[in-house]
Design a protein around this nucleic acid. Structure first.
Lengths: 116, 116
DNA sequence: ATATTATGTCGTATATTTGCGACATACTTC
DNA sequence: GAAGTATGTCGCAAATATACGACATAATAT
């Protein structure tokens, strides 16, 4: 019958999935790249750079902010968004570990199928 | 009014987002780790290792297979799943580029907010 | 041929994501 | 204070993701 174990997923798996989800939309990838490219921590006229409405961009920003991947500080009338490079570096490490683990295991043959 | 540019997202952004989405669920992260850990390219009794029904696991497997991150070859009664390490390595490169770009740009101060 | 086993697919229900217009808030300027 | 600007939040609609039971398929074993 192959019934499931009740053991839930590990914290690591959940954390990786959470961050992956944050990057799972081109708009959020674009936002991070945009923030990384700008000298100044440019405010939410990020919206002007994306094919999305201001509202939608704002939501994406909130999602990234919820994970603390980016930060926003109110500066008078505008909001100054910028990357949390410290956290991004940590996340980078997590992804690196994961990919190294994944790329050093047993694999399929180069072209087509399994060499089990 | 700040209206949007119609320029869509780049291929790179879409590709990264697509892979990130594949990793955006703990079950799929767990599946990849499981395949990486096993000497043999174990079949779909991966389900027995996860707190999910066989049907659901099958769907997650299909999603990973759709992106070619994993491959499955029918071996009589069982299906032999294994990682596409070549593609995973490529994807790893893409993520690396992204994170390096993201971690070398302008950032917030270490503890709290922007130093704009 | 029938039963058993390992898988995949279909249909369906629920939850989450995505996107946006309309409004609220808050600061600046006149 | 009134007008204007930059933002965020609410409410809704459409699309997608998640999960699973029930059925279909296909190979193996009896």
């Amino acid at each position: 019958m192959t019934y499931a174990k009740t053991a839930a997923f590990t914290q690591e798996q959940q954390q990786l999935a959470r961050v992956a989800k944050a990057l799972a939309h081109p708009a959020r990838v674009a936002i991070i790249q945009f923030l990384a490219s700008k000298q100044t921590c440019i405010s939410g006229d990020i919206a002007a750079e994306l094919p999305l409405s201001r509202t939608t961009v704002s939501q994406h920003l909130q999602e990234l902010k919820a994970l603390d991947l980016i930060r926003g500080e109110i500066d008078g009338l505008t909001v100054c968004y910028c990357l949390n490079t410290e956290l991004l570096q940590q996340v980078y490490q997590q992804f690196t570990s994961f990919f190294i683990e994944a790329t050093t295991g047993p694999a399929c043959g180069p072209a087509d199928a399994c060499a089990c």
